[in-house]
Structures are given as structure tokens and as C-alpha cells.
Design a binder for these strands. Sequence first.
DNA 1: CCATAATCTAAGCAATTGCTTAGCTATTAT
DNA 2: ATAATAGCTAAGCAATTGCTTAGATTATGG
Lengths: 203, 203
Amino acid sequence: MLFQSNCLVLSRSLEAMARKKQYNEQEVIDKAMALFWRNGYEATSVRMLEKEMGINQFSIYASFGSKHGVFLESINTYKKRIKRITDKLQASQNGKEGIKQYFYDFLKFARENGVNKGCLVTNTVNEIKKESDPVLMEELSKFADGIKQLFLTNLLQDQNKNPQLAKKQANYLMNCILGLSVASKVFEQSELDDIIEITFMNI
Amino acid sequence: MLFQSNCLVLSRSLEAMARKKQYNEQEVIDKAMALFWRNGYEATSVRMLEKEMGINQFSIYASFGSKHGVFLESINTYKKRIKRITDKLQASQNGKEGIKQYFYDFLKFARENGVNKGCLVTNTVNEIKKESDPVLMEELSKFADGIKQLFLTNLLQDQNKNPQLAKKQANYLMNCILGLSVASKVFEQSELDDIIEITFMNI
DNA sequence: CCATAATCTAAGCAATTGCTTAGCTATTAT
DNA sequence: ATAATAGCTAAGCAATTGCTTAGATTATGG
């Protein structure tokens, strides 16, 4: 599994060593994530992963155990990649303006060659049934809660903000960015800009 | 195909007649729609449709041509079913309050046995790739535009409303209800209520 | 140089996919 | 009753799914 086989290698340094992996696990997961992001989980076959990751099915199963395992690592990598903009939001001291910037940052983050792919986490919540994979679902919920919490702390930076209201507004903002994840796939950029402006008009 | 074979029957009344269909096409499509709504397009197999619709695969293909054909008819039926609440919005004279009511009506419409299934059209936009079925995608876009237009005309009922602003607000409201379609699958009802209240607070 | 062992290629597995078809059944006009 | 015809059942089709495995390849320690 990812980054564990290397440790295994170290712990066995006394025995006879064998062939080295001809690929970097993080690199091939990056490519897998891009494919899942574009296509969704079900619509991405192991044959497609083979091509995109540039390695044989044997290697995929040796490194990640299953298609599901590749997907879990893809989600982890997605979180790593989006951390760049959530960290920026965490560091922000501009109240709701910082959150607004996060909305624009997210749209940029989710765009590739002019195509909006939405949020991989949101796409996944939309695709899988809650009861089919409750562990993954719980993980995705926690990710969303983390972002909602960031919204809340940023909202509370604004003066005279009622904490009760701020909590509701955090839910409201979460709903708006969920909408943007979907809307960005269909709407024009100018419409998305309008939406963001109205969204932050009265909070 | 749906409601065409009956016409065929009429036009051939002089020749020998044969066995009658043992199912009602609208009834079995209602069941197919429910399944697609719960599971999505790809995750619904023809074998599952067989069971849910209560008819053999032969009958499915005789009546609707393909799995894709069943889905197209399911979308049509979805539009018929949701018409009950869009018609209510069309008849409303309460400005933004009528739209707010539509939000609540939609959440009720999308709930089945306590489970929120979202909007079938939104789910589909989220699942299929734009280029894989541009005809269907165009149809779904038109449906969404129709609702956006209803938002706009209702907004313009409010006094002293700037038409330019109203257009942006219609996009904003469309984004919020797209969000609700996703959020309703994960959020508690009280949170959804909070979201709707805040959504209409600043327009 | 050779034994060991991890990684590679490529063929193959059962199960499932959307769809078709052969043969039986039911309904009608004559 | 009989012939004609449409609908039904159920078996079967090729293609694709996620996953496995046999055998060749490559790297290391002794």
C-alpha cells in the first residue's frame, strides 16, 4: 500500500533484495485522482486507470489492493491538493471577504483546460449511496465539516456578529459552494461571478 | 415506444389482432424513474429495471428501445411529476415568498421514506459527461432555464426591483437550490431550514 | 555466478453489463 | 376451430467489469 512498502523494504535490508518499482506511487495516484475527478468512480474502469497511471493492473493491485483502494488514496491526495487554498482561508483575517476569496480560489482549483470538474468530494457524495460505503461517507462528511468550521471562524472575525447567526450563515455558505460545485459545470463564468457577489451581499 | 404502439394498434384494426400488453407503460416508467432517482443512471442495471418495473427485458426493449430510452422517458415523467410544484410557483403572486415556498415544496418532493434523493435532473447533470450525451444535456439545461425564468418573473413581482439585479438574483437562487439538491442528502432538516431562511434574507 | 525475491507482462478468471432471439402463449378476425 | 400476429418467457450473445495468476525479468546479498 501507499508508502508502506518502502518501510517494508527498509526493514528487510538484510535479506536478498529484488527488483525496484518502476513508478512512484504518489505520481500515479495523482493521475488516478485526475481521472476519477473527471469521470466519477463507477465510470472509471481499472483498464482506464491502467492507461492513465501508466502501469499494469498487477502493479495497481500490488500497490493499492483494489480499485476502491486507488480511490481512497485519490481522495487523500485531493485533500492534500486543496489544502493549499483551505490553508489560505485558515490564515485569512478578512472575515467574509476571505471566504469570498476562497469561493473564487475553489472555482480556479476545480478548473482544468477550461472544463469545470466540480469538487471531487461533492461529486462523490452525489454519486455513492450513503449505506454502500459508510466509512468513506463519514470521511467525506468530516472534510466538509472542516471547511464549514473555517467559514464559521472567518465569519466571527466580522464585528458584532451574532454567533448563533454565524452558525446558520456557515451552513448557508456551505450550501452555496455545494451549489457552485454543480453550477460551475454548466454556468458561464460571468454568471458564477454574479452568484458569488449576491451570495456575500447580505451577510 | 411509449404511447405510439397503441396508435399502431388502432390503425391496424382490420387485420388479425394479437395478445395485449400486460402492463401499462406509464406505470412501469414511474417505477423505473423511482429507481433511477434513487440509484443514478449507470448504477441502475437492466436486470434491476426488470425487477422494479415488473416486466421482462423483452418488454422493456419492445416498449422503450434501450436502457437509455427508459431513462429519457423517466426524465419526461419526472418533469410531469415536478410540474405540480412548478405550476404552483407559476401561479404565485407573492414575489420572493412564493419562491421560498417552492424551495420547501421541492425538499418535500425529493424526499421518500425520510431519504432525500435530490433532484433527478441535477443528479443526472452531475453524473453524465456533457459531451457523452449533448442532446440530453441540452434538454436538462432547458428544464433548469425554465425554473430560473420562473424565479425571475416572481422576483419582478416585488416592488421597485431592479431588473438587472433580479436577473443576477435568479442565478443566485438557482445556485442555492442546486446546493440544496446536494445538501439535502447529508444535512439535517433544521439545517436545511436555516439555509433557506438565510438565502432569502438578503434579496 | 548464483540463489532469492520483488516487480513486470500478459493471459485468463468468473460475474455482470446491455441487448437479442428462439419458441411458447394469448388474443383477435375470419 | 383456425390462421395470424403481437407479447411473453427464458436462454444466450459478445463485451466489459474487477481481480488473479503463471511465467519472464531485474535487482540484490552472499
